[in-house]
Nucleic acid binder design. Structure first.
Lengths: 120, 120
DNA sequence: GACGATATACCGGTGGACGATATAGTCTAT
DNA sequence: ATAGACTATATCGTCCACCGGTATATCGTC
């Protein structure tokens, strides 16, 4: 999506819409961080709250290091035993583009469903 | 999502929101079929048009047989050398629920982005 | 001091997504 | 006619995102 060259193999950080393969957990994590800095466990709880999805620990921490590698989030110095993360400017741009596309596509689908057709 | 028990292993057809693991291609295919019956190649073109995403042949035909196995789409008798598919009632329900969730989550993320926070 | 909640990290398995490739029919231009 | 581009489907092997399980450690509280 994001207009420029759709499906990317991509480990290229600068390229937007590089939200992993399809972006499930990544989108949720970035959306959560858009509200403020959080650490892994906090993200798990927040995402469970606003999306109703509980990410498995493996998914969470692997996604975090992937997103950090891609420059979409950055780690802050850890207090206590927490590793908080912050959304970067790049991450915010990527998230905005991705969510806009996602919402647009969802609306197309819903409109088509309402148009009576389909089940025929 | 879909309110009832989030992350499902699931090959259970009757259970909604069983759109594969995370549902990328599946959602696109179902949304395309919501407009009318189509065969694989036609789906590829339509999806490219409304979502800007070109699904690889492997992705397309494997997703189709998965969706058929799950009862979300059904194959029609093939004319010419085309295998057209139709969205089932179950598929329409699953799609509606999934898209509604997807749009809702996208809106949460976008609202959070607009609230100035994040990049801090 | 046992227990549950908080918190992170690593591991192996599964399967969805992908590109490549094979096959074949159609249509057009040369 | 026939080479080349497009239509159309199917299968295969690879990769890696996602997952649950598990290990580890700290904290609060009972």
């Amino acid at each position: 999506m994001t207009s420029s060259s759709p499906q990317r193999r991509d480990q290229d950080p600068a390229e937007l819409s590089a939200l992993g393969r399809y972006a499930g957990p990544a989108t949720l994590i970035l959306s959560s961080l858009a509200e403020g800095d959080k650490h892994g466990y906090g993200l798990t709880k927040d995402i469970e709250g606003f999306a109703g999805i509980r990410l498995a620990p493996g998914t969470m921490y692997e996604a975090l290091s992937r997103l950090e590698r891609q420059g979409l989030i950055e780690a802050l110095e850890s207090h206590d035993r927490r590793r908080p993360y912050r959304l970067t400017a790049l991450g915010a741009t990527a998230l905005r583009a991705h969510l806009a596309d996602q919402r647009r596509v969802a609306e197309v689908g819903l409109r088509r469903l309402e148009s009576g057709e389909g089940t025929a």
